[in-house]
Design a protein around this nucleic acid. Structure first.
Lengths: 73, 73
DNA sequence: GTGTGACTTTTAGTCCGTG
DNA sequence: CCACGGACTAAAAGTCACA
């Protein structure tokens, strides 16, 4: 079991990183994205293969471009 | 009518742009992604709200990073 | 080689909880 | 405030025949 950090895990970590930089709680952030709080939690834990429209919502709520959000992934 | 094309349309155009730069047909490209030819067509036409795992496959097949793929979107 | 509508299966995404 | 689960509904994944 060598291959660990798949794209969902890395993406989730990136979202968490950016969210915390802005002192959002998951709840407040979820509200800003108009997504469910448990869904945001699942994304950050790398359990969710979210679709492009929701990726965009997250980028918007974080105030970054999609390219910035994907940086390093 | 100032409304900007939505994210799916812009993403699809970006994929097509990069695919054509590499002289891929949809068919050959679909094969490289291990996705269906008609599914790729749907993406390029902005009709598919594809999820992160498929976005990653496409980036890989195009030989670009996710950040590069999202550039300008 | 590509566009499109129709279709079934799988999964994204919501909403209710718990510790 | 967050991780996690169950049950549900909406939508994405994936395939096809035909233009």
């Amino acid at each position: 079991m060598v291959k660990k950090a798949d794209i969902l895990v890395r993406f989730g970590a990136r979202v968490r990183e950016l969210r915390l930089q802005q002192d959002y709680s998951q709840e407040a952030f979820a509200h800003a994205c108009e997504l469910d709080r448990t869904y945001i939690g699942g994304i950050e834990r790398g359990e969710r293969n979210l679709a492009l429209r929701n990726i965009e919502r997250i980028a918007e709520a974080l105030g970054v471009t999609l390219a910035e959000l994907m940086k390093g992934l």
